[in-house]
Each structure stands twice: as structure tokens, then as C-alpha cells.
């Protein structure tokens, strides 16, 4: 729980900052049977990022990384919109898009688990080629569609709640059930923590890793549907551009180490919300949107520094508090190696 403290503090501070500029920031109201308010907007617009980040969390926990999710977002939206524009019907369009995403994810997982390529490289292949593939599907154009049913996925409401938020809650619920109620989470953490030891303990890592990459791509696919539905069009070139970086950030801010092992889904959600709140805040306090990236850089640096044990040790030492000196990771490795420390 302690590792969720700092992301939570940052999120609260960011939200509180808005009060000074938008007094009505925290008010949530029902208008025309729909929930309205800035907080709802943060959740609604943050939904795709949260989805992608959930998938990314599992991948990172296995000690991997998935750079291709942004391209998968674009491919999913492109294929769904293409199908709808060719009157294939909504169920068919969604099924085709998500089906393709599963295949692409399984391909990533296959490269990593069966062929044994480093994850960053294996998914770099699809990151580069996938963008081309999305543009190939849309033939380099932006496909615009007009389908009210499809529009619901990203922009609709159900029982006053934005549909996107419900999708996020559902995906989060399923993931939490699979990982924490069932034993998937422990096996993922074991594979990410020590792959060879896991193999010798009889864990079938290959299947788990392939499944994790497939589910990351599936999450990205749903996010892709949401994004394209929200704007009723598919843009192979720009949809989901750099979302993989935001998702990785969200995971890291949420306290999951890029080295794999222990992961935290709630931390990831907090991380994604921080990133989304930051964007919203910049608009609401009237800073020129060009500087969004600057603020993002600053917040990312701040959050990562706060979470870094060696930074905290140094900062506290400077203040003259005689906190017990935590060994730096480097020292910990050394101490662990001797086995007799």
C-alpha cells in the first residue's frame, strides 16, 4: 500500500490545483440523464489510456515491454471503421478488429516467448510495421463513418454513466479477478521475477507470456475502438500515436518496476489518471496547450524522483534527518550476492 501513497498524493494535488482556476471542478451533475463534470471528463477521456495501461502492466510484470500497442490502437480503429463503411455490421466489425488484435498480440508473445527475442525489439517490429499496416487498411486516408451504434462505444452513455468508463471498470474487474483471485498474478510475477527458476518450478511460462501479450493487444484494440468511435473516424497515421509511451509511464508511475516482478493494477490506474488529469488541468488553467509536453516532462520527472529510493535517501539526508540509510539498489545487489550479508 505504501507504494501507492506518492502517486495518490500527486493526483490529489493536481486535482486540488484545479479548484483555484475552476471552482466548479469537483461538481458532478446529471444532465439529460447523463453524468457531467470535469471529473467525469477525466475518466471518460482517460479511458483508452487506462485500458492500454492495464494491458501494459501485465506485460511489464513478466519482465517485458510492449511498444506496439499504439500501432494496434490504430489498426483496430482502422479495421472496425473500414468494416462499418463497407456495411459489415457492428458485431462483425468489432469482432474482426478485436480478433486481429488478438492475433497481433499473440504474434508478439510468440516472438518473445517461443523465439526468444528481447521484448523491446520484438514489439518494435510491430510498432514500426503496424503503423504501415494501419495506413494500408485505410489506404492512407481518414475513414469517416456515421454509425450511431458504433458511436456508443466511445461517446455513449448507459444508465447515465459514460459507456467508456463502464468498459474500463469491466476490463479492470476481469483483470483483477484473473490475476488476484485466480493464480495468474502470482505466476506472472514469478516469471517476471526469475524466468529460469519459474521454468524449473514447472511453470509453463510460454503460454502465460503469449496470453499476456495477447491481452495487452486486446486492451489496446478496445481502446482503439473507443478512440475511433469517439471521433467517428479512423486515422491510421495518428490514432494512438505515442500512447505506448504514456501507458509505460502510467505503469511506472504506478510503482511497477520495468524490470518485471511485482505489479500493481491500482497503481497503474492512478498513474494513467495522473497523466490524463495533467492534460485536462493544463487546458483548464489556461496554459497554452503547446506547453503540455513541458508540464508532462516535469510531472513525470517529479513522480519518478519521489519514487526513487535513492532520491528520497539523499533528500532526507540533506535535511539532516538521520533516517536509517537504505542501501541503494546497487548495494542491495551486492549485499544479496554474497548471501552472507
Amino acid at each position: 500500500m505504501r507504494r501507492l501513497l506518492w502517486p495518490a498524493v500527486v493526483l490529489v494535488l493536481l486535482l486540488a490545483l484545479n479548484i483555484f482556476f475552476t471552482p466548479s471542478f469537483f461538481s458532478v451533475q446529471v444532465r439529460d440523464g447523463h453524468l457531467y463534470g470535469s471529473l467525469i471528463d477525466i475518466l471518460r477521456f482517460g479511458a483508452p489510456l487506462i485500458l492500454v495501461s492495464i494491458g501494459m502492466t501485465l506485460v511489464i510484470a513478466t519482465g517485458g515491454i510492449d511498444l506496439s500497442v499504439g500501432s494496434v490502437v490504430a489498426i483496430s480503429g482502422a479495421l472496425a471503421c473500414l468494416q462499418i463503411s463497407e456495411d459489415a455490421g457492428l458485431p462483425m466489425a468489432v469482432a474482426a478488429a478485436l480478433g486481429l488484435c488478438l492475433v497481433l498480440g499473440a504474434w508478439n508473445g510468440f516472438l518473445v516467448a517461443a523465439v526468444g527475442i528481447q521484448p523491446i525489439i520484438a514489439t518494435l517490429i510491430l510498432m514500426v510495421a503496424g503503423r504501415g499496416l494501419a495506413q494500408l487498411i485505410t489506404d492512407g486516408q481518414i475513414i469517416t463513418i456515421n454509425d450511431p451504434a458504433y458511436k456508443v462505444i466511445g461517446g455513449g452513455y448507459w444508465l447515465t454513466v459514460p459507456f467508456g468508463i463502464l468498459v474500463v471498470i469491466a476490463v479492470l474487474g476481469i483483470t483483477a479477478f484473473l490475476t488476484r483471485r485466480l493464480a495468474l498474478g502470482m505466476l506472472i510475477e514469478s516469471v517476471g521475477g526469475n524466468a529460469e527458476a519459474s521454468r524449473l518450478a514447472g511453470i509453463r511460462a510460454r503460454g502465460i507470456v503469449i496470453m499476456v501479450y495477447a491481452s495487452a493487444a486486446l486492451c489496446a484494440g478496445v481502446a482503439g475502438l473507443m478512440i475511433s468511435s469517439n471521433v467517428s473516424s479512423a486515422d491510421g497515421n495518428n490514432a494512438g500515436l505515442w500512447i505506448e509511451l504514456d501507458a509505460i509511464l502510467a505503469v511506472v508511475i504506478g510503482g511497477t518496476s520495468l524490470a518485471g516482478g511485482r505489479f500493481s493494477l491500482s497503481g497503474t490506474v492512478l498513474g494513467a489518471l495522473i497523466i490524463q488529469t495533467l492534460t485536462t488541468t493544463i487546458y483548464s488553467i489556461g496554459v497554452p496547450p503547446e506547453t503540455t509536453l513541458l508540464f508532462k516532462a516535469l510531472v513525470v520527472t517529479a513522480v519518478c524522483l519521489i519514487q526513487s529510493p535513492s532520491f528520497r535517501a539523499k533528500a532526507f539526508r540533506r535535511r539532516g534527518r538521520s533516517a536509517p540509510t537504505q542501501p541503494s539498489p546497487e548495494e542491495r545487489v551486492l549485499a544479496g550476492r554474497g548471501g552472507t550479508a
Binding site: M186, S198, L200, G202, R204
Partner: peptide, 21 residues
């Protein structure tokens, strides 16, 4: 260290790992 333990996991998790597998 290399072929046995998962250092991040707890003692309990390391003990039940093979059974779970």
C-alpha cells in the same frame, strides 16, 4: 539464486510456487 528463488516474491509464494504450477 538463479535457478531456484524468485527474490521479489514472499517466502509463502516461493514455497507454494511449484504446487501452484
Amino acid at each position: 539464486k538463479e535457478d531456484g528463488l524468485v527474490p521479489d516474491l514472499t517466502v509463502r509464494e516461493n514455497i507454494v510456487l511449484a504446487l501452484q504450477a
